[in-house]
């Protein structure tokens, strides 16, 4: 599957839930490419902006969409990677700030 195909497939599922891809298409496709790379490496789509442990169970919270997407988009208008954003974020109505890592350090499997 290509990043472009993944884009179309996910978009249909995620937009009705209120999660939109970053309108910066190149960046979005780059991140989706990262997901496909991690799928090949580890067997699951680990977040491209976090280091995978290789243990699916231990990384369950950072398999995209991660469990931190909801609170991050609610608070910052964007997930940690700037992959999923709110409509307001895409329309420039939300200040673009760096989304800090919400994952508790103790969750890290290494």
């Amino acid at each position: 599957m290509t990043a472009a195909e993944l884009y179309q497939m996910l978009r249909k599922v995620q937009e009705p839930k209120g999660y939109f891809f970053n309108q910066d298409r190149a960046r979005t496709l780059d991140l989706l490419e990262g997901l496909l790379i991690n799928k090949k490496r580890y067997g699951y789509m680990c977040c491209p902006c976090r280091l995978a442990s290789g243990d699916r169970a231990k990384d369950a919270d950072i398999i995209c969409p991660c469990t931190y997407r909801e609170p991050d988009v609610a608070e910052y208008g964007s997930c940690y990677c700037n992959l999923y954003v709110s409509q307001e974020w895409n329309q420039g109505q939300t200040p673009v700030v760096y989304v800090p890592e919400r994952r508790p350090p103790e969750k890290m499997a290494f």
Binding site: R27, D30, L31, E33, G34, I37, N38, P48, C49, R50, L51, C81, N82, Y98
Partner: peptide, 9 residues
């Protein structure tokens, strides 16, 4: 960095 991370790029 991570090779797949856009912030790192």
């Amino acid at each position: 960095a991570l090779s797949t991370c856009s912030h790192c790029k």
